[in-house]
Design a protein around this nucleic acid. Structure first.
Length: 301
DNA sequence: AATTGCCGCAACCGCGTGTAT
DNA sequence: AATACACGCGGTTGCGGCAAT
């Protein structure tokens, strides 16, 4: 974690700071302010370059620094700000009091980037990954999923697939011919999303009563859930930060069973076919669309 | 118990930008 | 206008710690 103490040819110390050096720096700055960083080490009696002193103070010794685990709220904020600002760590840090750009950058590189990638999202664009390696790795699964849905024509199954953000959602939607409309919202304290599916085909797609096409015990979707680490229990509760999101309830969709009529079309204007959730939907935010970017741009401004 | 390999994070480096001369 | 200097930012490094073997 620390670097080996070393001296360059000019005799200036580099590497980790000792508690003694920290004390000298803190005492000096509390007494005199940092002034010119370049001049500080000599004035304070430190065998360091000014840059090293500034870094040590700004990233570690400053009294207003908040250290420790990032909260879920901070994590969500970082992800959303990053989706708008990119690797502008200093800009992101201004929205997280007490956190330094260095700490946020490290947290991103060691945790958040991996988390997004595991979910099939590109950590640069925050969009579903479409790189060839990822698609090849998952191609068999994607085809199986698509075939299953086409065979069953089960809107519930489609909706369940939509809740796995680590899948290349747009590809699945494209294969199936679905228009998937996600709207993000902010209610003053919580970020959430609503999701709507608009089926482009004719009504016969919904002729089968839903009960006949629900996944059987031990059937395909159970295997599917196990494979990708999901949860077969449908729930609107949001999981902890280290696990995959639980499924959003699709209970409103049960009204789809029965005869075909106009009401069985997924209609974007019909609120009863709206899947929505709130309570700080961290993972829902990962399904960002442009509408959400606009919100965060406003937030930053 | 010893070794290996990976991960997290403090600290460093190089570059870009702003300011003074 | 040109140069020098100071600082801030983002990318990268490399070691300690820890889990796996």
């Amino acid at each position: 974690m620390m670097r080996t103490p070393s001296n360059d040819e000019s005799g200036i110390k580099k590497g980790p700071w000792s508690p003694e050096e920290d004390k000298i720096l803190v005492d000096y700055i509390q007494k005199h302010g940092h002034g010119s960083w370049r001049a500080l080490p000599k004035l304070a009696g430190l065998n360091r370059c000014g840059k090293s002193c500034r870094l040590r103070w700004n990233n570690y010794l400053r009294p207003d620094i908040r250290r420790g685990k990032f909260s879920d709220e901070e994590e969500s904020l970082i992800i959303n700000l990053h989706s708008v600002l990119g690797n502008k760590w200093a800009a992101i840090a201004t929205h997280l009091p007490g956190r330094t750009d260095n700490e946020i950058k490290n947290f991103w590189n060691t945790h958040l980037k991996k988390k997004l990638m595991q979910m099939g999202l590109d950590p640069v664009t925050h969009r579903p990954r479409t790189d060839h390696l990822y698609l090849l790795t998952n191609l068999q699964q994607i085809i199986l999923n698509a075939a299953n849905i086409v065979t069953n024509c089960d809107i519930n199954n489609v909706l369940r697939l939509q809740q796995y953000p680590q899948l290349p959602q747009r590809l699945i939607n494209d294969v199936l011919g679905f228009n998937h409309n996600i709207q993000n919202f902010y209610d003053g304290s919580n970020v959430g999303f609503s999701s709507q599916l608009i089926h482009p085909n004719n009504l016969q797609n919904f002729q089968a009563p839903i009960q006949q096409v629900l996944p059987q015990e031990g059937g395909y979707f159970q295997k599917f859930d196990e494979q990708i680490g999901g949860n077969t229990n449908v729930s609107s509760t949001i999981s902890s930060s280290n696990s995959l999101p639980k499924l959003v309830s699709v209970s409103t969709q049960s009204s789809l069973s029965g005869k075909v009529n106009e009401e069985n079309i997924i209609n974007e204007k019909d609120p009863s076919y709206n899947i929505s959730s709130s309570s700080f939907e961290i993972w829902g935010d990962f399904m960002n669309e442009d509408a959400n970017d606009a919100y965060w741009k406003d937030f930053i401004e």
